[in-house]
Simulated assay, not measured.
Amino acid sequence: MLSSLGAAPKMVDWQGRGYFAYPGGLATPAGTEGGQLPQAGDHIGWLDALSRAKHGDFSLLPRLVGLGGADPHPVMRRLCAELLGDAGPASVVDTIAARLATEDVGFERTLAWGAVLTRRGKLADMPIVLAAFERVATFSDAEMLPVHLSGCLETGYELCDHQAYDSLQHYRQAVLDRCAALAEGFGTDQICVCGGELLGVVGLARRMLQRLREPCFPFELRRRFECATGIDCSSFYREGVFRPAQAVAILQGFIESPHASRFESGVRYFWGHRIPDQVADDG
C-alpha cells in the first residue's frame, strides 16, 4: 500500500495480510495533488476499486484496464491485473481477452493480461494465453504464463515448464490437447476451471487440504480462496513461514459450515459476492 501519498505502490503480500491490508478506499485530500508521484493517483483509484468490490460494487473495475495510461508504473500494472483477475466482471475480462488475441500489447502488458485471463480461468481463453506466451517466450520472465496455464488446466505440473518439451510446438500441442479434453469432458469451453476442474470454492478448499500433504504449499491457492470467500487467511503464515495446522482449521471449518453452501460451482466470487457478467462504470 502507500505509506504516504508520495510513496511508491507495493505488491499485495499473499504471505501476509493479502487484501486485508487495505481496509478501505482513500480519497485524495484537497491540495495534495501537486505533491504526489504520478502513480499515487492511480493507486488511490485502485484502492477505491478494491474497497467497493469487497462490498459487492464492481463498477470501478473497468477503469483498471487503462489505469496509468500508456506507461504505467510496473507495480501498478501488476496490481491492476491481479485485481481484474480476481474480481473483474466477465465483460471487462472478455475485452482484455479480445485485445490480447488481436493486438500487439507489448511484453509487460502481455504478461499482465495473460495473468488476468488465467486468474479468471475461462477455458476458451487458454489458447489465447498460449498464443500470447509464444510471442514472448524468448523473454525470461515469460515463464510465468505456463505456470498460470498449468494452474488452470491440471492438478499436476506437466504444463508448468515449456522447456521440458522437445519444442515449443510440442508444448503448444500438449496445452491444446488438454484444453480439448476438458472441453469434451465438460461439453463446452465456456466455463471457468481451476486445477483442471470446474471452478468452485468448496472444491478449491478440498484440493487445498489435499495439497497440504505436499511440500511447498503455493500461496496462490490461499489467494484464490481468500478472494472468493473474504475469509481472512493471514494465519496461514507467520513471518513468511507456512503453518499447515492453521490452514487446516480454516479450510475444514469452512467446508463444514453452512456458509459453504452459498457458493455455486462454476461461479466466480469476490469477498463472498457473485461477480457480475456486466457492470456499468459509474462515471
Score class of each variant (00 low, 15 high):
residue 27 A to P: 00
residue 271 W to Q: 12
residue 136 V to A: 06
residue 209 L to N: 10
residue 270 F to G: 11
residue 244 P to M: 07
residue 262 R to M: 02
residue 118 T to V: 08
residue 40 A to Y: 04
residue 140 S to N: 11
residue 152 C to P: 01
residue 79 L to N: 10
residue 241 V to K: 13
residue 259 H to M: 10
residue 93 V to Y: 04
residue 230 G to L: 02
residue 27 A to Y: 03
residue 115 A to C: 04
residue 172 R to E: 06
residue 64 L to E: 04
residue 123 L to S: 09
residue 93 V to Q: 09
residue 213 R to T: 13
residue 184 E to Y: 06
residue 213 R to V: 00
residue 78 R to S: 14
residue 49 A to F: 02
residue 139 F to K: 13
residue 126 M to R: 02
residue 58 F to I: 09
residue 64 L to H: 03
residue 164 A to E: 14
residue 250 I to A: 12
residue 202 V to G: 08
residue 18 G to A: 08
residue 196 G to E: 08
residue 189 D to Q: 11
residue 8 A to Q: 14
residue 137 A to D: 02
residue 60 L to F: 10
residue 35 G to R: 11
residue 173 Q to C: 03
residue 133 F to S: 08
residue 183 A to V: 07
residue 26 L to F: 03
residue 103 E to H: 12
residue 79 L to C: 01
residue 269 Y to N: 07
residue 71 D to N: 12
residue 273 H to I: 06
residue 146 P to D: 03
residue 269 Y to A: 05
residue 94 D to P: 01
residue 187 G to T: 04
residue 192 C to D: 14
residue 48 D to W: 00
residue 203 G to C: 07
residue 162 H to S: 13
residue 6 G to Q: 12
residue 24 G to D: 13
residue 44 I to Q: 00
residue 226 E to H: 07
residue 181 A to P: 03
residue 253 G to C: 12
residue 280 A to P: 01
residue 134 E to H: 01
residue 150 S to Y: 00
residue 180 A to Y: 01
residue 261 S to N: 06
residue 156 G to V: 01
residue 116 V to T: 08
residue 12 V to I: 15
residue 42 D to N: 15
residue 220 E to V: 12
residue 58 F to D: 07
residue 140 S to H: 11
residue 162 H to I: 00
residue 96 I to V: 15
residue 275 I to V: 15
residue 159 L to S: 07
residue 185 G to W: 07
residue 109 R to C: 02
residue 56 G to T: 05
residue 142 A to L: 09
residue 276 P to N: 09
residue 197 E to T: 08
residue 21 A to C: 11
residue 121 G to P: 11
residue 29 P to N: 04
residue 241 V to L: 12
residue 106 G to Q: 10
residue 99 R to F: 00
residue 24 G to P: 00
residue 185 G to T: 07
residue 276 P to H: 07
residue 111 L to P: 06
residue 136 V to M: 08
residue 275 I to A: 04
residue 132 A to R: 01
residue 67 L to E: 03
residue 189 D to S: 15
residue 246 Q to I: 00
residue 17 R to G: 11
residue 140 S to C: 00
residue 276 P to K: 06
residue 232 D to V: 10
residue 13 D to K: 10
residue 67 L to D: 01
residue 122 K to Q: 14
residue 222 R to H: 06
residue 193 V to Q: 02
residue 211 R to D: 10
residue 195 G to H: 03
residue 23 P to K: 04
residue 114 G to V: 04
residue 122 K to P: 01
residue 131 A to S: 15
residue 67 L to A: 13
residue 53 A to G: 10
residue 168 L to C: 03
